[in-house]
């Protein structure tokens, strides 16, 4: 029997993941409310200083996304574990790397959608203005979510099979995400605040190179993580 190609199986698995998310909308809704609550908490914690809140809005957006990503990633592998479907997938003659690509892209899409959804909330709550274009904002959200999703999927697969998985995932994920997160937060802040020194392309380039790094390494290493 001929194995299906990498791209074909990735595509199928990707749709399977999105369909699963769609069928269990309760989870997606919970995620949305969680990220909203996080944003609100930042505003409460810092008090009513509007100027301060506005200046830090880029950071809040990414912190909210990062905290939500831990929930989303944990969930996405909990489903697989509870139904033992990862074992099922391994029986099918499908390249394990396509599981990585499919899950990673699905997680990135989910997070990016969440990010775009949070922007109007930021505008309403923190009086943020989008000084640069919407296109740039979406670009940086997409690149940032890709950067979270690749190592997130890899570590999600690891943590879901370990003890204390809820502690372990952020412990593994957060440190290596710091550079990408700094780039994403600074880039977003420039979108909100304006970019006098034309630094935006550099932050995008930095974020993009971290994407290449994480996705390349994840693609090579993921088969070893899920093998028996």
């Amino acid at each position: 029997m001929r194995r299906p190609g990498l791209l074909a199986s990735t595509w199928v698995l990707f749709w399977k993941d999105l369909l699963l998310e769609w069928r269990s909308r309760a989870r997606v809704n919970a995620l949305v409310f969680f990220s909203l609550a996080t944003l609100l908490l930042f505003s409460f914690a810092l008090g009513p200083d509007t100027a301060l809140l506005r200046r830090n809005a880029g950071g809040y957006l990414w912190l909210a996304l990062l905290l939500s990503s831990v929930l989303a990633l944990g969930e996405s592998f909990r489903v697989e574990r509870e139904n033992s479907s990862l074992e099922g997938l391994r029986l099918v003659p499908v390249d394990t790397r396509s599981i990585f690509l499919a899950k990673g892209i699905a997680n990135a899409v989910l997070l990016a959608a969440l990010g775009v959804l949070l922007v109007p909330v930021l505008v309403a709550l923190l009086d943020v203005r989008i000084v640069l274009s919407w296109g740039r904002l979406v670009t940086i959200i997409a690149l940032g979510c890709l950067a979270i999703a690749a190592p997130g999927t890899l570590y999600g697969a690891i943590a879901s099979h370990a003890r204390a998985r809820d502690v372990l995932l952020p412990l593994l994920l957060f440190p290596i995400l710091i550079p990408a997160l700094v780039a994403a937060a600074k880039g977003t802040a420039l979108v909100f605040e304006g970019d006098p020194m034309t630094q935006f392309p550099s932050w995008i380039a930095l974020l993009g190179s971290f994407d290449l790094l994480y996705w390349g390494l994840g693609f090579v290493l993921f088969p070893r993580v899920v093998e028996e």
Binding site: A162, A164, R165, L168, L172, I176, R224, E227
Partner: peptide
């Protein structure tokens, strides 16, 4: 620190070895 925590939280020695190797390469 996360790497050491991972080693502590996985009980199966073979899985622990593979997973910490993957983590170590990324770090």
């Amino acid at each position: 620190a996360g790497y050491m925590a991972l080693r502590r939280f996985v009980d199966d020695p073979e899985r622990r070895a593979v997973w910490s190797a993957v983590t170590g390469i990324i770090i």
